[in-house]
Design a protein around this nucleic acid. Structure first.
Length: 260
DNA sequence: TCGCATCTGACCATGCAACG
DNA sequence: CGTTGCATGGTCAGATGCGA
């Protein structure tokens, strides 16, 4: 039953609505008419086929937790994890609760502004729209001079350019909240890891804040090291073109080992 | 293999209500 | 009546698909 609902929400957002999706979600002209049943049934069929493909794995135990990665040990058993493979947020000023807003409402995850804010507060800070007054993840990076340097460089650049909007004034802060949140996550996660556990984090370099370069992978590796992980390597996954700076930005896999 | 059509995105700004 | 807090606004170049 769940995949009927999911496919219906997807068909409404994708083929029926007037939303358009790019780096951000946009609103285009209202469609006078749109196909619903065809795209919906194709979505259902695709999910059913995917489930068939996974048939040989149906004895593999699986658990899904809806939780804040900065409080990982609240839902994960101590000493229970062998490997972590993940693509966490990047400090990129992108608000995914906007990209997924319509289906979040359609599927009943969000009913009003208060629900939306509750979701946003439970996310690691990666954009200024997610920053709230009482946020204090930044205290976790006070001992990292390179992150303080970047935050100061962003703030200095903002003043130099005479930028004064509410968002621009949060650029330095959200940078610290991001790395502070990741530091909290890595610290919390340690209890759940088995000695010798391996971890892989895909992250991209960013220059979203007044074009001050943030070497996300490199910085994440140094934070991980400082809380006891071994950095096995930082592998280049791909490069991507930053449209504003015409620069190639590195996207990397930070590979870690928890010695126990 | 060529060339046209289609698809796909890890930024950067402004506006406004609430508040003291 | 300035300040604070936070929701809302939109593109185009390169990659990929596909028919001839």
């Amino acid at each position: 039953r769940a995949h009927y609902r999911l496919a219906f929400a997807k068909a409404l957002v994708d083929s029926a609505s007037n939303l358009s999706f790019g780096p951000e979600v946009g609103v285009s002209a209202v469609k006078p008419d749109a196909p619903i049943v065809g795209p919906w049934l194709r979505g259902v069929r695709r999910m059913a086929d995917d489930l068939d493909d996974l048939g040989s794995c149906d004895m593999t135990p699986t658990e899904v937790h809806l939780a804040d990665s900065r409080h990982a040990s609240e839902v994960l058993e101590p000493n229970s994890i062998d490997a972590v493979i993940t693509s966490p947020p990047y400090p990129n000023e992108k608000d995914y609760t906007r990209t997924t807003r319509l289906e979040s409402v359609l599927l009943g995850f969000i009913r009003n502004r208060a629900d939306l804010q509750e979701v946003k507060r439970g996310l690691l800070r990666s954009n200024t729209r997610g920053v709230y007054k009482g946020d204090d993840d930044d205290q976790w990076v006070e001992a990292f001079p390179e992150i303080l340097r970047i935050a100061h460089a962003i703030e200095d650049r903002r003043k130099e350019l005479g930028k004064t909007s509410g968002f621009e004034r949060l650029y330095a802060r959200v940078t610290m909240l991001y790395f502070g949140g990741m530091a909290r996550h890595l610290t919390e996660l340690r209890r759940a890891l088995k000695p010798g556990a391996r971890l892989a984090y895909v992250v991209g370099d960013q220059a979203s804040y007044l074009r001050i370069m943030i070497r996300t992978g490199e910085l994440l590796a140094s934070i991980a090291e400082s809380v006891g992980y071994e950095v096995t390597g930082i592998d280049l996954f791909r490069t991507r073109l930053a449209t504003a700076t015409r620069q190639q930005l590195r996207e990397e896999v930070v590979v870690l080992r928890w010695p126990g």
